[in-house]
Design a protein around this nucleic acid. Sequence first.
DNA 1: CTGAAAGCGCTAACAA
DNA 2: TTGTTAGCGCTTTCAG
Lengths: 337, 337
Amino acid sequence: MVTLAEVARHAGVSASTVSYVLSGKRSISATTRDRVERSIEELGYHPNAGARALASSRSNIIALMMPLRTDMYVPVMMEIALAVATTARTHGYDVLLLTGEEGPAAVRRVAGSGLADAMILMDVELLDARLPLVREAGRPAVLIGLPADTTGLTCVDLDFAATGALCAEHLAELGHREIAVIGEAAAVYERHTGFAERTVEGLRRRARELGLRTLHRPCEGGYASLAGTLARIFGERPGTTGLVVQNEHAIDPLLSLLREQGRAVPEDVSVVAVCPEQVALQASVRLTSVAIPAQEMGRRAVELVMEKLEGRGRPRSTLLPPELTVRASSGPPPARG
Amino acid sequence: MVTLAEVARHAGVSASTVSYVLSGKRSISATTRDRVERSIEELGYHPNAGARALASSRSNIIALMMPLRTDMYVPVMMEIALAVATTARTHGYDVLLLTGEEGPAAVRRVAGSGLADAMILMDVELLDARLPLVREAGRPAVLIGLPADTTGLTCVDLDFAATGALCAEHLAELGHREIAVIGEAAAVYERHTGFAERTVEGLRRRARELGLRTLHRPCEGGYASLAGTLARIFGERPGTTGLVVQNEHAIDPLLSLLREQGRAVPEDVSVVAVCPEQVALQASVRLTSVAIPAQEMGRRAVELVMEKLEGRGRPRSTLLPPELTVRASSGPPPARG
DNA sequence: CTGAAAGCGCTAACAA
DNA sequence: TTGTTAGCGCTTTCAG
């Protein structure tokens, strides 16, 4: 294994010079730099990560804690994770993948050992068991999701309350008066994951202001479950003309079932989805939707982590503004009677 | 920050004793061990990862290289990754997440710096650009997927040739004579990802033996694309009564379109899918399918890595045997005429 | 602009 | 069963 000392000898300079060439932390004459770089190249030198971490007390690693949930939509999680990983690389950091398996203790282990310089937590719940540990970990952390108490924390999330409101507004403007929300699985609400509840609250509040009647039904996703949900919705509120879906597993079944029931979209029922763009575009009807900006969230989280690692940046929450794109699934309600 | 030396002082023993209590690499009297463990507890000691890595030249980290492809089915990738992470933890290892972004050079960087002790590569292509680097990296590696030349390499994969054969057999036994394969996106074949081609080859070979006619059509997934694919299949081979789908994005559209076209499943057309169990179960018809054992693949990969890290275990490929589960989507073909 | 040298915290011989 | 100690390879003062 090639060491820095060997590079130094080969280039006829001191170890510190090689180190500084690598880090750029002090000015080096062009000739020296050239010589060192050539030696590095020739010898195929790679700085040892462990030695670096020990000497500098920085590992250049960010821990990413993912949940192990089965009820979250996987592609979004994945897109966030990949965005985190690639963005981190552009800042010279690698990403350590932690699953929820280990529980909150993982926070302590990774922070305490200095394995990671900072951490990003995904799928944060309103009262997340990891938060106390994060606060006392003494390492920069960024949450993806919004807990109940954000004091001292930095969070990134889509503004789901505004998202719900936006959906209500869009349907109201089109002239709808009765709308229903097909939500996430019941477990998601019970766990108080925040985003799902915020969407519904935002939608309800705005709907009230606009004089819309609303109904909210959680849904497991899949055909069987959705058939039941749909039946109950139209059973309780036959006048429903607008549906807001926040559940990726419900979208395909929803469109299929509506078609089978002879309800045309958007002539008889308008559908607005809260989902990733790709899902909205690949459905059998191009869906009017509010996009979930997964990549943006991952990217932002890393950038906030970097700010903290560099000493700039204090706790603050970033709520990304929702954007609604009108496509083929929404339109005016059918004429009354 | 609490160091091993402080623990030693606090417990009234030497540093090496603390180290050995931690590693269990030599016998310690019960009393000493107790004292040390109590000190560790009281002081809240966590061994420093960098120092450990430097002194032992082992980071206890496994690198996991994921692709950035958009045409692979994400939940499978994710399931593998999570299985890798949790299994690694049970062996005391953490997982570093590398995306394809950095290209093959990531292999060199991670191996050369000693950041990871071993690596697992996902989505390996027949002629994968990372393989030369893996071979010369001098670190244990396990591939998920099967390249063209496996000499000196350890691979894990579902036996896709046998999978294809199994699908052909099932349909043949039911009495079908003309079957079609709805495959992955064309790009997947062009890239020579192996698994997709192997399935079709295995299916074709067995079909020939059984006297079945076959047709294979790649498909992008989504409604529009699938409608075209389906039209071409039934246009060229009106007698087709069995469909094998190896494309998760095609499943929902396929079932919807068949229904709309008045082709009943399985009365008019049998459908056999190659997909994760969950997908087979959540479709509008419970699908006869060969499962993609994502978790098992992740778990196996880690176990093979561990064997190598412990010195046991030479290069060898593990092909997991496919299992076909008969559900509601396959049955005898309609009576002729 | 460059060098010398003191650690960083831990592991693993080597001794006892 | 336990202690002593020499590094592991790099960063970063402190000197020059």
